[in-house]
């Protein structure tokens, strides 16, 4: 068995640097508003103000609460088409390089998504009521 180095740590130095920068900036984003707050003298907390904001739901309640599944349905459909858009950008940029095959492939992909969309529409997945 030929021994290869398990991990060459030197390759990961940029990531370490990146982590450090990210930590510094995010820390700044948390601390800076608080400092500004103090300085401008608008620090007048009340319960509503202190309540954290979370997608329109109360922060503290029973985790087994009824929850309308239609939110998820819409969200999933959104993700599908969101990802489609994410695929479309690199495709559009490199279309000149990948030629007819690339174009046909994306068209097929879009047709497939279209069929899926048609199915979902026909099934009534897009109707809220």
């Amino acid at each position: 068995m030929r021994e290869k180095p398990l991990v060459d740590l030197s390759q990961y130095l940029p990531i370490l640097l990146f982590l450090g920068v990210a930590l510094a900036i995010s820390g700044a984003f948390v601390v800076l508003p608080m400092i500004v707050n103090r300085l401008t003298g608008t620090a007048k907390p009340n319960p509503d103000k202190l309540a954290e904001y979370e997608c329109g739901f109360p922060a503290f309640e029973d985790s087994r609460a009824q929850f309308d599944v239609r939110f998820y349905l819409v969200a999933i459909l959104f993700i599908v088409f969101d990802l489609e858009a994410a695929f479309l950008y690199p495709w559009a940029v490199s279309l000149g390089g990948i030629g007819l095959t690339g174009w046909a492939s994306m068209m097929l992909f879009l047709v497939e998504l279209g069929i899926g969309f048609a199915y979902a529409w026909k099934k009534g997945a897009l109707d809220w009521e």
């Binding site: 068995m1 030929r2 021994e3 290869k4 398990l6 991990v7």
Partner: peptide, 8 residues
Amino acid sequence: GDGISHGE
């Protein structure tokens, strides 16, 4: 083919 590393 030329040996297997731990990662592999």
